[in-house]
Design a protein around this nucleic acid. Sequence first.
DNA 1: GAGTGGTCTAGACCACCCC
DNA 2: GGGTGGTCTAGACCACTCA
Lengths: 252, 252
Amino acid sequence: MGKFRVSNSEYVQPFHRLQTQLSDLISETPPGERLPAEPDLARQLGVSRATLREAMRSFEAQGLIRRRQGVGTFVVGHPNIIETGLEVLESIEKMARKIKLDVSMGDLQIKEIAASPTHAQAFAIEEGSPLMDVRRVIFADNRPVAYLIDIVPEDVLMPSALKDGFTGSVLDFLLRQGSPQPISSSTEIQAIPAPPDIAHALEIQRGDVLLLFVAHLYSTDNRVIAYSLSYFIPGYFKFRVVRDVTSEHPFA
Amino acid sequence: MGKFRVSNSEYVQPFHRLQTQLSDLISETPPGERLPAEPDLARQLGVSRATLREAMRSFEAQGLIRRRQGVGTFVVGHPNIIETGLEVLESIEKMARKIKLDVSMGDLQIKEIAASPTHAQAFAIEEGSPLMDVRRVIFADNRPVAYLIDIVPEDVLMPSALKDGFTGSVLDFLLRQGSPQPISSSTEIQAIPAPPDIAHALEIQRGDVLLLFVAHLYSTDNRVIAYSLSYFIPGYFKFRVVRDVTSEHPFA
DNA sequence: GAGTGGTCTAGACCACCCC
DNA sequence: GGGTGGTCTAGACCACTCA
């Protein structure tokens, strides 16, 4: 069939109808409750499972439902949103504390790596130079919401020092350490489909959309002391920027 | 089959292998050239068309390929990237001019609408109040790259005035008009799956990822004079933010 | 072991573009 | 008319979770 005829000249794609039906179903289901299993739901709604799953994708991306393999699909209550201005640089932990959100870290991995071409360019060092690679998942309300990767030269972040007192924030760690002294960062904002490994860590589907911040952290002596990739699940974060109109504008 | 066995204990999902193969194929194909048709390519690569299309999604989201219904899938050369800092507010036209990019506007729609609850809140006015709704597609190098919606009260932007000399930027228009005088904006940055209508206008697949800026524009008398939604195709834009470490940080 | 979501297949029909 | 990408189906097997 593919599509089905509603009147002589009007086709309605299952997808559009499905989105409405799903939206209703989700809003009628109490948060925390499980939805019917996909094969059942597909039968109920009169579509194939593939079409149903495609329509469900956008709801998951908005954080309204959560799918857990082997368990089920659950309706999520209105999530607590981590909201922050981008005027100042601060760790997720500090942002979260401000809004009294329970944030924790998991899946911490610390590796020594050799500088890739990308790393070499970021730090203005030679390829193959030793670097520390620190990556972890950030949880808020027991839900993974961000995946953070920090790349730091070994002389900036002693591997041994990391063993103690690392709570998830490389920035906070460097600030406590005191030297070199972080002073500012330059961040590029992108949106990308989640790479498979990160999708897995964040318990989302590969290809789901993520916000990506690529940041260079500078010290007081103007050196790049950290290069970081921060992947955020949209819907759990809200980033705000205040901008001024350029002064030379009016008669440009 | 679903997945296939490579050795006794190792499975490789077609998806991973496909991404590599597609990446190679795309990088080996001269920009502007067409890729084989999907059914052919799927056969060549030994996967079903559904799997092939799924793997192609991420490449389209990155702007590396462009799919055109009824025509074919084309390799896109390294796109000219519109890069800008977020410290100052300026129109896409101005950004583009700086990097000598050919930018134009299309599909301009100007409507009078009644304020929705969202609009009423944004402008602090009553629901149903008359507003102007201006939306259009921004093209760069003959490719749609952004979809802009501006909502403006009728007393700020005279409908008649819009008829002449509107080139795509409400900001530039208000600046030329002089009163009320725009002075700053507050913008929220999100990432969302493209809604069907916008996906269509931007010639991407529904569900593909977009960057969304939700902005409130303020005038010198501290009034909200415009509410805008800006959808950007990632890969054609690069937004940069410079942030300073908070002063109270070191011993917090 | 039973049930869930995750992935993949083979085939079909559609809308669209261009000759 | 012929070929392209866009959507949908029905069915299968897999990995995962939990009792």
